[in-house]
Simulated scan of single mutants.
Amino acid sequence: MKRLLLLSAAVLLGACSKEEAPPEPVRPVLSVEVKALNQENLGRFAGSIQARYESNVGFRVPGRIASRNVDVGAEVQKGALLATLDPTDQQNQLRSAQGDLARVQAQLINAQANARRQQELFNRGVGAQAQLDIAQTDLKTTQASLDQARAAVNQAQDQLNYVELRTDHKAIVTAWSAEAGQVVTAGQQVVTLAQPDIKEAVIDLPDTLVDDLPADVVFQVASQLDPSITSTAIVREIEPQAQSATRTRRARLSLTDTPPGFHLGTAISVTLSSEIKPRLELPASALQEVDGKTRIWIVDPQTQTVAPREVSLISRTDDTVVVANGVKSGERVVSAGVNSLKPGQKVRIDEGSPQ
């Protein structure tokens, strides 16, 4: 009887030893969905919104600035008074020209009267032809002097009008180069005006980058204060020569559209990108090096298991890698903990995994 009990116990122990091992626990993993990239970022640069058309204006006559009527940033309409000169010199010139005109007008009256007298005497046969010719010549000379005096008065009047500096178009005052009390010459820059209707983005690009810009380069423009205000732009012009101190060349970009938030002087951030052949970018942590080969782990959404797959690298940085093949857009790849995975292992995608 005792021997039967021992035999039964041995049979039970052998049966227990043949039971399957407990299933491996489901492993939580972080993963990312593969997305194809069709643009290449070439850099990010700071710049500002400026007017495409600016004009540096000044007085058409010399003099001392008597008043400055607007400040920087003011928006002015066509014909607005910007500044004035002391008009004393121009007023004196006008009075002098008006005096000369009055004198010549009096001379003309005498010349006309003398010409009439000589003509009457000649007609009665008591006047000489020579005297008549002299009188008529004097009349023509005085008439020419009158025309000249009138032109001088008009010119003096214009000179007096030029002591007022007015704008000939709607504009925004962006800079003053002279102050009240300063003596300026004719044509000297006094104020800078910008036409606010057409705006553009202005940035400084490294000289080495300008030469390598693709023909289809696209500029993404965003406000630094409010990145939601964006636009795209294309190159309008680039300075042909780099600045000696910074080795940069100023680029002016035509905006595709101009959001209301793009005011003159708005600080912007400009990103350069170019169309490229679609490629796939992954986190560097998704790679696993095994026996000299590079592989990643693909998550099967149906079975919730993982499987390794070899990939070929195009480029690599500290944070990301670009692969040429071995994975498709839309597949999900394990992005962390790849060294502890096994083929066919059950996984659970954490809710915090990037989508």
Rank of each mutant, 00 (worst) to 15 (best):
R116A: 12
Q118Y: 15
Q118F: 15
Q119E: 12
L121D: 13
F122I: 04
G125L: 09
G125H: 12
A128G: 13
A130M: 10
Q131D: 15
Q131R: 09
L132P: 01
L132A: 05
A135T: 13
K140I: 14
S145D: 09
Q148H: 05
A149W: 06
R150Y: 04
A151E: 12
A152G: 11
V153P: 07
N154L: 08
N154W: 09
Q157C: 03
D158M: 03
D158P: 05
V163K: 08
E164N: 11
E164T: 08
L165H: 08
L165W: 07
K170P: 14
K170I: 10
V173M: 06
T174W: 07
T174E: 09
W176M: 05
S177G: 13
G181Y: 05
V183D: 12
V183Y: 13
A186R: 04
G187D: 02
Q188M: 09
Q188I: 01
Q189G: 10
Q189L: 08
V191F: 02
V191Y: 03
L193K: 05
L193Y: 11
A194D: 10
P196A: 01
P196I: 01
I198G: 07
A201M: 07
V202N: 11
P206E: 10
T208D: 05
L209Q: 10
V210Y: 03
P214H: 01
A215R: 05
D216P: 00
V217N: 00
V217L: 00
V218G: 01
V221T: 11
V221R: 11
A222P: 03
S223H: 04
L225Q: 03
D226P: 00
D226C: 00
P227E: 02
S228K: 08
S228P: 06
T230L: 03
T230D: 01
S231Q: 06
T232K: 11
T232P: 05
T232D: 08
I234W: 09
V235D: 12
V235S: 11
